[in-house]
Amino acid sequence: MKLKLNIWRQESATAKGAFKTYTLENLEKDMSFLEMLDVLNEQLVTKGERPVVFDHDCREGICGTCGVMINGRAHGPIGGITTCQLHLRSFNDGDEITVEPFRASTFPIIKDLKINRSAFDRIISAGGYISASTGSAPEANSILITHDVAESAFDSAACIGCGACVATCKNGSAALFTSAKISHLAKLPQGRAEARIRVVKMVEQMDKEGFGHCTNTEACEAECPMGVSVLNIAQMNWEYNKALLLGA
């Protein structure tokens, strides 16, 4: 199949970027979107041009590294998948596809489609962990957790930190990402102990990074490749309000 690509090219964080159009022919419909970019890059290298820089790692939808805006939607037109899981069969022969990096004031562009998501790491560093003494692993059954609680915590932990929520949010809010980690740990006895101080620290860091306000449009949940629920945001608010009333 044949595709026309409008790809955002930008030399550096401070350089002015622009779209560049490429036409690719003889593409296989079962190629993944990233494999198509590989094909494009091979052609660019052959021609002596600089290849398109884009983030990718596992290419099986679990690492959260890849992620671009495809025709105005995070990770493309199909719900519940990452960019690497998108295949050309989701498009028609002759389609024009616009590819842009995830955009938010907190996600500066490094080059082309590659962005800096370190703000997420700093939010996690602020409190997205439990304090545990070192030593041998504790006995697994000494802390009882019901199946439902474990499943619910795992649903929150499913967040891969790809940033589609921030890119999709009109406010560039990181509420879904931050709340997923907060409620993942708050749901479990190991994390419960530090729940109040954790939410205060992580929310403060989220604000310090400059992420926008959550206005509950729920667009983040709709575009999240892992289907992380907006009820995590509700739980973050609950934990935060509790810390506000009872002290961290």
């Binding site: 779209f19 842009e100 955009r103 890119a167 949010c169 560039g172 992420f211 926008g212 306000h213």
Partner: peptide, 9 residues
């Protein structure tokens, strides 16, 4: 929010 949110072509 206008400042923090991204804009797309």
């Amino acid at each position: 929010n206008r400042k923090s949110g991204g804009k797309y072509a």
